[in-house]
Design a protein around this nucleic acid. Structure first.
Lengths: 315, 315
DNA sequence: ACCGGCTCCGCTCAGATGAGCAGCGGGAGG
DNA sequence: CCTCCCGCTGCTCATCTGAGCGGAGCCGGT
């Protein structure tokens, strides 16, 4: 493939001329053949050798924030419908950049016929912040609120913000993501406001979620859970959390007692959504992201170079 | 041309995928269309934008001694049949490298049906030194010897060496390049040995020559001429010397008294040779080389980057 | 609402292209 | 000298491709 050029200097230069005419000046092989006094077959063969010998190099890349090559490979490798890899790995601006990229992606792919579902995650919050334009699609809240002291945007605010941009209705509810026991959760889900939002899950066509690794500090759900639940869930094989949906290392949903206590979308509902885009950063989460894409629940990924490379390395 | 990409991230990545499939994996547009569920027209348009936006970059170059891009441009710009530009400008090894390149070129383009003509020049000498393989073409000496004390190879040796490699007859003669007066030159040209060689000029199909600038130290003929001749010839407008043939800045042959005193090929004879390759180095000679290629006497050029660039800059 | 202009899309069809094949010529070996 | 073999060349035909055309949807101005 990258073999050296066989012929002499004259043929080398001739080949280069032909290649330039063909690839850069966009002439047809017939034209080139006439111009150089060759048969079109000879021209075709010269171009073949030009490609094979590496005389003509074609590379696909773009001088911008998006690493298109990596995005493409990621999409291909995991069979994703969408993959956007951001070039920077700078920790300080990473979340903002991913938010912007995801916002752009959403602006592009969401139409008025869509119903948008949003889970709570800091990365999803960064997206809504960056969102400036959106087709008039209704927005549905997918998860309850997580009681973190430093949260600027609650789960509810996030949904309302997106709906404000889209100009279509917001379907939100006020409830925590995790409650003390299953009974309380069941009671809450019967609340009219919450039930109405949940009823819309089945019509959601595009969702945006976060992914957490089931270890301290790498999952808002993990951090919000009590010590006992953390341990039990861990022992059941849960490795990753997709906006509340708990899956094992291979992406299989794991039934847990904790899930009974959560006010959020479940695996079956998520799977029914044609498009689920995860925004994830931090190489620590490699295993979680791999589980998420393997699960098939996640069909799109917005991430950064380091994580993308890590994913591909272990694929 | 180098405009940025218009669409959103999803289309950007899709375009990159399609471009990779097309340019790197060499799939047909129809195949790609089926694979991605698009029409082949859509694929074509994506590829167009990919090219126009700079997402797909094609460059032609070769990691070797020969700068193919420059060679190509030179060939194109001056309508040359052959152009070989060597990448290095390192003065110490320049002549040797050019000699090797020219030798390769000659090995490639000379066939048993050719008759090879060789003029004397240090660069041509470097070529014969590097010559290891050559079709059995007879070799004809085009110029007399120049009496430089430091010459390793005389005009004669050069011809014999090439003929030894080719395995075909050498047609050489022993005579100086410049003699005291025209009468002596005429007498010499009538010498059987010399006349026989000269008679072969008309059958020469490929010649290799040097080019000199008509200033001190840039032309072996200039240096070999007497002060008076140098001045007279200069005043007649001569700027360049192509292995003894004197031309002005535009490449027009200039009739001179000096020419009458020289034992070498003349302009008409040189012009009759279908292929005349000049080996030249040193940016000082730019004007001389331009004159030589403009003259149409020279149809091929073996040179180095700096000189090639200088030529193109002033073209 | 209606119209005119605009853009985007996919169709048609002629011309361009590639895979495979046969002819030719040149060199090695008998 | 002949003969075989190999590589190069250009042909055929089925497929691919590009330029141009017309229709569908969109948008802004009455």
């Amino acid at each position: 493939m990258a073999g050296h050029f066989a012929g002499g200097p004259a043929e080398l230069v001739l080949t280069a001329s032909v290649a330039r005419r063909y690839y850069l000046d966009a002439r047809s092989k017939v034209e080139i053949a006439e111009e150089f006094g060759l048969s079109r077959f000879k021209v075709a063969r010269l171009l073949q050798t030009a490609r094979a010998s590496g005389l003509v190099r074609i590379d696909i890349g773009y001088p911008g924030a998006i690493d298109v090559g990596l995005s493409d490979r990621l999409q291909e490798a995991f069979g994703l419908r969408h993959a956007v890899v951001i070039n920077t790995d700078d920790a300080t601006s990473l979340r903002r950049h991913l938010g912007e990229a995801a916002a752009e992606l959403l602006t592009e792919i969401v139409t008025a016929d869509d119903v948008l579902g949003l889970a709570w995650a800091r990365s999803v919050s960064a997206m809504t912040t960056a969102l400036t334009r959106l087709a008039p699609a209704p927005v549905v809240q997918l998860t309850g609120a997580l009681s973190r002291a430093d949260d600027e945007d609650s789960s509810v605010d996030l949904v309302r913000q997106a709906a404000r941009v889209s100009g279509a209705p917001a379907h939100f509810f006020h409830a925590p993501m995790i409650v003390r026991d299953a009974a309380t959760a069941r009671a809450l889900r019967r609340q009219p406001e919450i039930a109405r939002a949940f009823a819309r899950f089945s019509s959601v066509t595009k969702a945006v979620v976060g992914v957490g690794l089931w270890v301290p500090g790498q999952s808002t759900v993990y951090d919000a859970a009590d010590t006992e639940a953390r341990r039990v869930v861990r022992r059941l094989g849960v490795r990753a959390e997709i906006s509340g949906v708990l899956v094992d290392a291979d992406g299989r949903p794991v039934p847990t007692a904790l899930a009974e206590r959560m006010i959020c979308v479940n695996a079956a509902q998520l799977r029914a959504m044609p498009e689920v885009i995860a925004i994830v950063y931090g190489t620590t989460k490699v295993a979680a992201v791999r589980a998420a894409v393997r699960s098939g629940l996640v069909t799109g990924l917005v991430t950064h170079s380091a994580l993308a490379n890590a994913l591909l390395a272990t694929a």
